Amino acid sequence: MALSYESDTKLPIKHSYDGDYSNALAELRSGINQIDEQLINLIADRFIKISEVGDLKAIFHLPVEDLQREHLVLERALAHAKKNGLSEFLTRDLMNVLMKHSKAAQAKRIRGL
């Protein structure tokens, strides 16, 4: 589907640009802020599960690091990112940061039990 563009601005018409770029920009930024909040909420939910995984690993004396699981997590994320047109580099960076902090949270949880 091709987008139509306003001739003078090169902005897609779908953004309801009415000549006042500040309103259009504020609207777009508000949407980004909402998405950022959702991302933080999802990451918080992920870390609740990470803590539970850490508890189980502590109970069963399992190591924090599970390279096979990390590989599967990364491959799933990359496949999902590709379907959504996201950069492989962004996805790798994001997942590596999440997994690094997840392992640290699990290790802390294990030491605390």
Score class of each variant (00 low, 15 high):
residue 84 N to Q: 08
residue 98 L to C: 02
residue 48 I to P: 02
residue 71 H to D: 11
residue 72 L to N: 08
residue 8 D to G: 15
residue 16 S to H: 09
residue 37 E to C: 09
residue 69 R to C: 04
residue 15 H to N: 12
residue 64 V to C: 14
residue 101 H to D: 03
residue 109 R to K: 14
residue 50 I to N: 08
residue 38 Q to W: 09
residue 31 G to N: 11
residue 100 K to L: 14
residue 101 H to A: 07
residue 46 R to D: 15
residue 7 S to C: 02
residue 54 G to T: 09
residue 50 I to F: 03
residue 104 A to S: 15
residue 25 L to Q: 07
residue 27 E to Y: 06
residue 7 S to A: 13
residue 92 R to C: 10
residue 12 P to M: 04
residue 2 A to G: 13
residue 30 S to E: 12
residue 101 H to I: 11
residue 96 N to G: 06
residue 78 L to Y: 07
residue 17 Y to V: 01
residue 62 L to F: 13
residue 49 K to T: 11
residue 70 E to K: 15
residue 21 Y to R: 08
residue 105 A to E: 15
residue 70 E to L: 00
residue 11 L to P: 11
residue 8 D to F: 09
residue 4 S to A: 03
residue 26 A to K: 00
residue 82 K to C: 00
residue 59 I to G: 00
residue 112 G to H: 09
residue 27 E to N: 05
residue 5 Y to E: 07
residue 5 Y to A: 03
residue 100 K to W: 05
residue 2 A to D: 08
residue 41 N to I: 03
residue 94 L to I: 12
residue 80 H to F: 11
residue 63 P to H: 04
residue 17 Y to G: 02
residue 46 R to F: 10
residue 110 I to R: 02
residue 105 A to L: 10
residue 46 R to Q: 03
residue 83 K to H: 03
residue 26 A to G: 10
residue 62 L to T: 05
residue 109 R to T: 12
residue 60 F to Q: 10
residue 87 S to T: 08
residue 85 G to A: 05
residue 78 L to T: 11
residue 79 A to V: 11
residue 66 D to I: 06
residue 44 A to N: 14
residue 43 I to D: 04
residue 11 L to I: 15
residue 103 K to Q: 05
residue 47 F to A: 04
residue 6 E to L: 09
residue 33 N to Q: 04
residue 80 H to D: 07
residue 32 I to K: 09
residue 35 I to A: 11
residue 31 G to W: 07
residue 33 N to V: 10
residue 28 L to K: 13
residue 109 R to F: 09
residue 13 I to N: 06
residue 74 L to H: 01
residue 27 E to F: 01
residue 32 I to C: 01
residue 71 H to S: 11
residue 4 S to C: 05
residue 50 I to G: 03
residue 98 L to Q: 07
residue 60 F to V: 05
residue 97 V to C: 01
residue 95 M to N: 07
residue 34 Q to R: 06
residue 64 V to F: 11
residue 35 I to K: 13
residue 3 L to Q: 01
residue 43 I to V: 14
residue 72 L to C: 01
residue 102 S to K: 02
residue 1 M to N: 10
residue 29 R to E: 12
residue 73 V to G: 06
residue 86 L to P: 00
residue 45 D to Q: 14
residue 34 Q to G: 08
residue 81 A to Q: 07
residue 48 I to E: 09
residue 13 I to L: 05
residue 85 G to P: 07
residue 55 D to S: 15
residue 13 I to W: 00
residue 27 E to T: 13
residue 17 Y to Q: 08
residue 46 R to V: 03
residue 83 K to Y: 02
residue 104 A to N: 10
residue 97 V to I: 15
residue 110 I to T: 06
residue 37 E to D: 15
residue 60 F to C: 05
residue 66 D to K: 12
residue 55 D to H: 08
residue 36 D to G: 01
residue 97 V to M: 12
residue 90 L to D: 12
residue 14 K to R: 12
residue 61 H to K: 13
residue 95 M to A: 04
residue 32 I to E: 04
residue 18 D to Q: 06
residue 68 Q to W: 01
residue 84 N to V: 02
residue 61 H to W: 02
residue 20 D to R: 05
residue 26 A to C: 00
residue 31 G to V: 09
residue 31 G to E: 14
residue 12 P to R: 00
